[in-house]
């Protein structure tokens, strides 16, 4: 564990070095969130009755999404992991006394956390200061906040476990870019990255709520905003745990098979 906290620290300090990058990133995400909220507010004005969430919930959803963007977006890619598989330097990794699956899992998690740690606080502070109706609200109570934090953690793990499948698939495919883009796009869409799940038409939503993607950003963002509360929140966290376990199991199985192949073929 010590190794990974060191990794986190290095990445964090590294990203601090680039202050202009950090500021630019903040400005971008802030503007992005602002534009999204403006668009939703236009739809809200058009027909408040058809709005499936409370407007303030949507606002919180969007700000939280921007604040934790780097935690959940599928298209962030660890080039050194991908390169180690494609170029075959994974053979060296196998010599080290660390389980490769765990190692990569922690590396990706640490990287995503380091990126988000720098960005989330300023965005959230802004989001609490901007005037109504753009202002973000706190969750209804402390319990909800706690559930949210738990759910963020689980969602991050689900995202990482899912992206591990993409890395492992590199052992088999030769042309990863297209497939990767495709999967990233689909998963971001069904995780509520473009439009929150409550805005989906009822039949699509009914299916989407059960997919592994629903266990990604969808769950913590809606728990925070209070759109999912009480027993539903517990059920949601249950769904996250289920998908996390399933993805971990599948990932580990695929990994051990892929590694056997590497050994047989000599990398």
């Amino acid at each position: 564990m010590k190794k990974y906290s060191a990794l986190f620290r290095i990445r964090f300090i590294n990203s601090l070095q680039y202050r202009a990058a950090a500021l630019a990133g903040l400005a971008t995400q802030f503007a992005w969130g602002f534009m999204e909220i403006s668009a939703f507010s236009a739809f809200y004005r058009a027909n408040p009755a058809a709005f499936p969430m409370e407007f303030s919930q949507t606002v919180s959803y969007i700000w939280m999404q921007q604040a934790f963007l780097t935690l959940f977006m599928m298209w962030f890619w660890e080039y050194d992991i991908a390169a180690s598989i494609i170029e075959g330097s994974i053979a060296y990794e196998m010599v080290r006394p660390l389980d490769i699956y765990n190692r990569w899992f922690c590396q990706i998690t640490a990287n995503r956390l380091a990126r988000a740690a720098l960005r989330c606080a300023p965005i959230l502070i802004f989001a609490f200061l901007v005037p109504e109706p753009y202002r973000m609200t706190l969750p209804p109570d402390a319990a909800q906040l706690f559930l949210f934090l738990l759910s963020v953690l689980l969602a991050l793990c689900v995202v990482v476990a899912f992206s591990m499948l993409m890395y492992i698939s590199l052992f088999y495919t030769l042309s990863p870019t297209g497939v990767r883009l495709f999967i990233a796009v689909i998963s971001d869409f069904f995780a509520g990255g473009i439009v929150p799940l409550p805005f989906f038409p009822a039949p699509v939503r009914a299916v989407a709520e059960w997919l592994p993607f629903a266990a990604m950003q969808n769950m913590p963002l809606r728990i925070y905003s209070g759109n999912i509360a009480g027993m539903d929140a517990f059920a949601g966290i249950g769904l996250q745990i289920f998908w996390l376990a399933a993805l971990l199991a599948v990932g580990r199985l695929m990994m051990s098979r892929a590694l056997k192949r590497v050994i047989v073929q000599g990398g």
Binding site: F43, G178, V179, L181, V185, I186, D188, F189, F199, P201
Partner: peptide, 23 residues
């Protein structure tokens, strides 16, 4: 494959627009 991925990237945006307008 990359071109197809690009296609789907904007397709989900289109789908989002469609969802919003069907509501």
């Amino acid at each position: 494959l990359t071109a197809l991925g690009q296609f789907f990237a904007s397709f989900t945006v289109l789908l989002g627009v469609y969802f919003m307008f069907s509501r």
